[in-house]
Computed example of a mutant assay.
Amino acid sequence: MTVELRTVPLVGGPVELRGALNLEITQAGVMPCRLPAWTKEQYQEPSVHGVTLMPSGVRLVFRTDARALEFEVLTSTGQLYSDPHPRPTGMVELMVDGTLAGRQQAPVGNVLRMAGPGAAQRLIPGEPGTVRFAGLPAGMKDVELWLPQQTPTELVALRADGDVLAPLPDGRRRWVHHGSSISHCIEADGPTGTWPVVAAALGGVEAINLSLAGNALLDPYVARTIRDTPADLISLKVGINIVSLCAFRLRTFGPAVHGFLDTIRDGHPDTPLLLISPVSCPALEETPGPTVTGPDGRLAALGDPADVADGTLSLAVVRAELARIVATRRASDPHLHYLDGRELLGPDETEDLSDGLHPTAAAYRRMGKRFAAHAFATDGPFR
Rank of each mutant, 00 (worst) to 15 (best):
K369Y: 12
H337A: 14
I240G: 03
H49L: 15
D161C: 07
L261E: 01
E45C: 13
G311K: 14
G239K: 04
L112Y: 13
A247G: 06
Q27G: 15
D340Q: 00
T151G: 03
L353W: 09
L17Y: 05
R103L: 05
G29R: 05
A231L: 02
G90F: 01
R298C: 00
A160N: 10
A373C: 07
L322D: 00
S354H: 15
G254N: 15
Y338H: 09
D262H: 14
A247I: 11
A362M: 13
H268G: 01
V61D: 12
V58F: 08
N241H: 09
L218Y: 01
N215R: 04
I264E: 09
D142E: 13
D304V: 09
G204T: 09
G139S: 02
L35G: 08
R67I: 10
D170M: 07
D163P: 12
L23V: 00
G129K: 04
V317C: 10
P107Y: 02
T99P: 06
S47P: 04
N110Q: 02
L261K: 05
A320G: 12
A138D: 14
L336Q: 00
D83I: 02
F260K: 02
L158P: 12
A134P: 07
G239D: 01
S277H: 10
L136F: 09
A213P: 02
P32M: 03
A106Q: 11
W38Y: 13
E16K: 14
H374V: 08
D379C: 07
A106Y: 06
E24Y: 10
R265Q: 10
T2W: 13
G294K: 01
L250E: 14
P255R: 05
V238R: 08
G346E: 05
G193S: 15
P14Y: 09
S314R: 08
V257C: 06
P288L: 07
V176N: 06
L10Q: 03
G171C: 04
G297C: 02
G129A: 00
A20Q: 04
A372M: 07
T89W: 04
A256R: 00
G254T: 15
